[in-house]
């Protein structure tokens, strides 16, 4: 479904098709806005595959990545996305900084705001924290994951991966497997894939897949083989050991035995079903290494590639809106 374009920066996205100041979650996006981001991201995939991967969409703008929680891949992905679009990118490892000295989130936000950034990319361990921060700054804010709430760019990159692999992003049977309770990736995906009219199954032990998720219109399975039957897409989640208070599962080996994705369990899915994982993987805990490396089934590397393109698209759209609102303010 890629739509090749001659020049990504002149993408035909009218501001009306994505009318947001921030990207805080999937919940506030409408289906056509999701499609607009994915269409633009498709063009950035093409750009990223060229030897000269550069555009000036964010030239002159300052992007600050504020990660209050450890991250390597998401932070790197946002950094590369910003640099390829010509932004001045700065990374702040917030864990090691002022928070330790007792500064509140809002004070940190106000301090940064005074440096006139244009794009703030924020990850925070508490649900709603990025939303709170966005109310106190004048720039565009991108949520790079807040607590157990949302991780919108992950859901968008997953959607783009599915759309390119399956040729469509609707009427698919999609299984999300594992630690749904503690996963912002699961929430954002559940909302996005639901908005695009797919059937979603959640698979995992009831301690990790609470019954209230049925109220989002998902089907819940605690038997993985039954849940994987005839699905088009298998999304594995990381078993977030660092989030566990302890006692959600008896042991890693029992978890792998019952809910780890191996060839036998995968055989219950459609023969052309794709396997996804947001990373970083725990090989032998939630996914068998040979499945993860099977280039015929696994799209895990594509997900990483799509991540850069989707983040370029999201920042491009937000920057367009930011420039427009600034020029409107200057004119009016």
């Amino acid at each position: 479904m890629s739509s090749p374009m001659s020049s990504p920066t002149s993408a035909p996205i009218s501001p009306a098709s994505f009318d947001h100041r921030h990207l805080l979650g999937i919940e506030s996006l409408r289906p056509h806005e999701i499609t607009a981001i994915l269409d633009l991201a498709d063009s950035y995939v093409d750009l990223n595959r060229r030897p000269e991967k550069h555009s000036d969409a964010l030239a002159g703008l300052t992007q600050i990545n504020m990660f209050f929680e450890n991250s390597t891949r998401t932070q790197a992905s946002f950094e590369i996305a910003g640099k390829r679009l010509g932004a001045d990118v700065m990374n702040m490892a917030m864990q090691a900084s002022s928070i330790k000295k007792g500064e509140t989130l809002i004070d940190t936000a106000m301090t940064l705001n005074a440096m006139h950034p244009d794009l703030l990319v924020v990850r925070h361990p508490h649900s709603g924290a990025v939303d709170l921060l966005s109310q106190k700054v004048n720039c565009a804010v991108l949520n790079a994951g807040d607590g157990r709430h949302e991780h919108p760019t992950q859901a968008l990159l997953d959607a783009l991966t599915i759309r390119r692999a399956k040729g469509r992003l609707h009427r698919l049977n999609i299984a999300i497997c594992g630690d749904v309770a503690h996963s912002r990736v699961a929430r954002s995906n559940l909302i996005l894939l639901g908005k695009m009219e797919n059937r979603i199954r959640l698979i995992g032990p009831p301690t990790l897949v609470p019954g209230q998720f049925a109220e989002f219109g998902a089907e819940i399975y605690d038997d993985m083989r039954e849940g994987l039957k005839d699905v088009d897409v298998v999304m594995m989640l990381r078993l977030q050991k660092e989030r566990m208070d302890g006692g959600f599962i008896p042991s890693e080996r029992e978890y792998f035995h019952r809910y780890g994705l191996d060839a036998e369990k995968l055989s219950h899915a459609k023969p052309d079903a794709i396997v996804m994982h947001p990373g970083p993987m725990n090989r032998g805990v939630e996914i068998d290494g040979t499945i993860a490396d099977d280039i015929n089934r696994s799209v895990i590397q594509e997900q990483v590639e799509m991540g850069v393109a989707v983040r370029m698209a999201a920042m491009d759209l937000l920057a367009q809106n930011l420039r427009k609102s600034r020029s409107d303010a200057a004119a009016g």
């Binding site: 649900s127 709603g128 807040d146 157990r148 709430h149 912002r184 929430r187 209230q212 989002f216």
Partner: peptide
């Protein structure tokens, strides 16, 4: 312990303990 909301659809959507 640690709860900030009542369990249910709303708390699940907001990702609150």
């Amino acid at each position: 312990a640690g709860a900030a909301a009542t369990s249910g659809k709303f708390a699940a959507l907001r990702g609150l303990p």
